[in-house]
Amino acid sequence: MTPRTRSRPARVLTQRALNRALLERQWLLRRAKRSAPEAIEHLVGLQAQSPNPPYYGLWTRLEGFRQEELATLLLERQVVRIVLMRGTIHLVTADDARRLRPLVQPMMERTLLAHATYGRSIAGLDLDALVAAGRALVEEEPRTMTELGALLAERWPDRDPNSLAQTLRGFAPLVQVPPRGIWGVGGQTRCTTLESWLGRPLDSSMSLEDLVLRYLAAFGPATAQDVQTWSGLTRLSETLEGLRPRLRTFRDEQGRELFDLPDAPRPDPDTPAPVRFLPEFDNVLVSHDDRTRVISDEDRKRIATRNGMVPGGLLVDGFFRGVWKLRQSRGTATLLIEPYKRLSAQERAAVEEEGKQLLDFAAADAKARDLQFARLK
């Protein structure tokens, strides 16, 4: 009889148990007394298609976080905005950017070449020459994608300028430089290479095993498909098999095998969870294949849009209960909350209290602050 057949059946983790484990590891059961760099590294970055979501993401997780803390980190080049997991913009520490980009680079190139528009536009092109020319241009000075495409098209006039710029973005690690990402400051998105911005080369010391372990620390317990959904990488089942002796395994209520770090926190499923406002694109809502540990399939479809936007999410008792948006006009800041399910009087009061704190954080200079609930549809 093999050791596998003699082993006990894997413990089943309920949906609520998975929810509380995720919230604990995401620092959403209580605000952590930690610094912004510590949070950004622990979370393996924050998704950051827009400038402000990372600020909200840190505010909802950290005790006493202020906007200037993250703005300073960006200006001092301790954190950067760069395309990483899933081919999306993430805010990560400078060291993580150097370590993570080599791991996702094959995915970046594969996705670019398979793109219906970009792949066709650059077919037959000398990619090494394009990357060398593009690097020289953005390292000379940070440039917008439009500027970059136009300059590259001077050398390759028979090619689509945007495809040329996007190809460089896929094949070279471009960072978005400030003022992009600075709270309250506008400006175009300008890019240069990570190596030029930091004055240091990429770091290939991180392994796929390291990446998977860090994912589990921030998002586990999880299936192999969950890790692949978060990272955009494939064939990670093999990586998890290699890690199996170092991990614990469980089953979810559907019988799927879950992997986890042996000593990672798995709180009691009845642990109270406070109201939390998640920002747009928060990885809590997009980093599992099966996301029912935090959002129902029905609500997931409801918030889905063609352009991939993920609205700000409202968590009540740890689960997605609606969306929110902040509007500012003529000195007035209004927090609009749209519940997807009816809130009890106690839940509504807790949402209002947390919402007032969100307004204080996001609109401290507003002459008037208002909180409104949309009617259930």
Rank of each mutant, 00 (worst) to 15 (best):
E354D: 07
E241N: 10
D290H: 02
R101S: 02
L113A: 02
V294F: 02
W197S: 06
R330V: 02
R99Q: 12
A165K: 05
R81E: 08
G255H: 06
A17C: 12
T5H: 08
H90T: 06
R31D: 06
L243T: 01
T192D: 05
L198Y: 10
H42Y: 15
A224L: 07
T117G: 11
T193F: 03
A366C: 15
R155M: 07
A10D: 11
T193N: 06
R159P: 05
V83A: 14
G57C: 09
D95L: 13
E38F: 12
I182E: 05
E141L: 10
R342A: 15
Q176L: 13
M1S: 15
L127I: 15
F259S: 11
A97V: 13
A39Q: 09
A123P: 00
R248F: 13
F259V: 08
T5P: 01
V316T: 03
K377C: 07
T332Y: 04
Q254Y: 02
C191S: 12
L127G: 08
I40D: 07
R348W: 00
K325I: 02
D268F: 03
P339D: 04
E257F: 04
L151V: 12
N307Y: 04
T234A: 14
A32S: 12
V80R: 09
W27Q: 13
L164K: 11
E139H: 07
Q228S: 14
R266Y: 06
R20E: 06
E238M: 09
G170V: 04
L46I: 11
Q328K: 15
E139V: 05
V92C: 10
L22T: 13
G312W: 03
L261P: 10
D289P: 00
P201I: 05
C191T: 08
E139N: 13
V227S: 04
L247C: 10
G186S: 02
V44M: 15
D128H: 14
G170P: 01
S196L: 05
V138D: 02
S287K: 00
T14K: 07
V351H: 01
V83N: 13
D160F: 11
N307M: 04
D270R: 14
A374I: 00
E147F: 04
G184A: 03
K356G: 14
P173C: 05
L168A: 03
L376W: 12
W197F: 15
L326G: 02
R30G: 10
P274D: 01
G242D: 07
P142K: 05
L326C: 03
Y215G: 10
R159F: 08
H115C: 03
R251I: 05
G119A: 04
L62V: 14
A374N: 06
M206Q: 06
I40T: 11
N52V: 07
L343F: 02
G124Y: 04
L113Y: 05
R244H: 05
G87P: 09
R66T: 15
E354I: 08
S237L: 15
P9K: 09
D370S: 12
P262W: 10
L164G: 11
V177R: 07
L202Y: 03
S196V: 03
S7M: 13
S237G: 15
